[in-house]
Design a protein around this nucleic acid. Structure first.
Lengths: 300, 300
DNA sequence: ATGTAATACTTGACAAAAGCAAGTATCTGG
DNA sequence: CCAGATACTTGCTTTTGTCAAGTATTACAT
């Protein structure tokens, strides 16, 4: 599998890189492991030896000696815990704090120097990518937020529909054109008091959308529901649909309707679960494939 | 969080991670530095000691001993260079190659196991992000390729225009709508024998576009030239315009015209340099700002 | 309450890893 | 042919890390 190789390649690349810019410990008066301990302690404020050991992945015996050395140098102080006589609460002394700050400054400078060699957009790209890596590996379920639309979003909606429906169902460019028309129409004729678009964002980029537009005084229409593959499986589709229902209800519409296709199983399941009923089916041939269009509605 | 901190945070995160999954050397019969040397040698096939040392960032004295040990174990063989008696060409013996392959397999398995815990779209996101990081840090000038449009691209064109012109010049959504209309029109009425769209791609994602459309039998129009900030500064705009000129010329058009704005300095410079002449100026007020539209043309 | 097991460290003994400096053999350029 | 550079090697040292055993304290089951 190619992905495995890509990861391994990166591992080799990055370990080499890190070897070169060993995070700021170069030129410091402390040997590396002492600096690591000092640094971690400075970051955390106060902790016990075993916490430290677990975090830095150091042998406890070794760590014990490192701490001794730091204590001898007057950088770290330990205080037996009141609750648990076995534990020692470690913290930096004033001198230790100074040493930490100097380490910290050095490391910061080094990174700043490295970043400084890159143009601003490259920096943004780099930082974004690093955050993605960390997010994925930490399995932080990458928070998804909803917001209104802003510049570029209609374009995103068009491109997401064009790209995904082509990839997943083979719909041709006529579909992208249709969506472009809907998006343009939305921008041109938006009635903000009765209509709305939601963009779902994950890690700073759009991953989903849904629209509510006015069909008549009493009837609102839900359109352009889409969720990127990478954001699926966390109930985002449902969440978007629910926003629409709440909005339509709040604005006093009596009915929320939508048009979908019989083979869009995931979307249909959401509609059904949200209380929509199918009211009509009609086979048609559009976007280069044979489809069965379905009309669904929800009484509000 | 600022960029420097973000990078430092990642460094700490990743070194911890790597500590945990020291690339496949765990459980191998070789201590880590020997395994590193063996691995690198397996990757490269043949090289000299100093190349190896430079790459792995090892002290040459230390490396010399490591190599001795590998030689004693019958894993590595050295052969004095014919051209340069000081050098020794190192290579793996058959036994060494076997050892390397076992290391390699172990490492691959470990990474595969880690990846396996992630859903497929997460894997894709991870690999993409890793490639971005490496690309940016290596300052590989990320090759830019041109291609015709495909599904999703018209949407991308719309979103790029909407986003960038808003960010850089404050043009409001009426501009995005205009672009959406142009894009839709292009999809609906495309005459492939006389019209064309180019999408510039960098690292697998679109970073620029340009269109040639038919205005009349003899006159072609260049439209929607755009280059993402991150892809600027490498002559991509010029390259796109030149594609258009060559295409228009090849198709027998007599004139290539375009409409632009007086404040779009970068684009205007490209047009001027490519031989376009400004033929008309007209102030107007559109997209929520005061502008001076300019008509340029090039006799083919 | 009392003995057993677990936790939170410390200590001693060692081994592996890494760095530094001096040395040898070879090549390069004047 | 010589001064200086290159490509290693060797000896000596420090740093870094591991392992196992030891102490004090706490948690828990009887």
């Amino acid at each position: 599998m190619n992905r495995v190789d890509a990861v391994r390649r990166f591992n080799r690349f990055y370990t080499r890189r890190i070897g070169v810019l060993r995070p700021g410990y170069l030129g410091s008066p402390f040997p590396l492991p002492l600096a690591r301990v000092l640094y971690e302690l400075g970051q955390r404020g106060e902790c016990t030896a075993s916490e430290l050991g677990g975090d830095l992945d150091l042998d406890l015996g070794y760590l014990s000696r490192l701490l001794q050395s730091l204590r001898r140098q007057g950088l770290v102080q330990g205080q037996a815990s009141k609750q648990d006589g076995r534990r020692v609460h470690l913290s930096l002394t004033t001198k230790g704090r100074r040493a930490y700050q100097s380490l910290d400054a050095r490391s910061r400078e080094e990174v700043a120097g490295m970043l400084g060699k890159l143009a601003a957009p490259e920096q943004v790209r780099l930082v974004g990518a690093l955050e993605t890596v960390e997010g994925v590996l930490e399995r932080k379920p990458a928070e998804v937020t909803l917001r209104g639309h802003r510049s570029g979003d209609m374009g995103w909606v068009v491109q997401a529909h064009g790209r995904l429906y082509y990839a997943e169902y083979g719909w041709d460019e006529r579909f992208e054109s249709l969506v472009a028309g809907i998006a343009k129409d939305f921008l041109d004729n938006l009635d903000p008091s009765r209509e709305r678009c939601w963009i779902a964002e994950m890690a700073g980029e759009p991953v989903g959308s849904v629209f509510v537009v006015k069909q008549s005084r009493a009837v609102a229409k839900l359109r352009l529901l889409i969720v990127e593959p990478k954001a699926r499986g966390r109930g985002l589709g449902k969440r978007l649909v629910e926003e629409c229902i709440a909005f339509a209800r709040g604005k006093g519409y009596r009915k929320l309707v939508l048009w979908t296709q019989s083979n869009l199983a995931a979307a249909r399941a959401i509609y059904a679960k949200s209380g929509f009923k199918r009211v009509k089916r009609r086979p048609h041939r559009e976007f280069g494939v044979r489809l069965v269009g379905e009309y669904w509605e929800l009484k509000l």
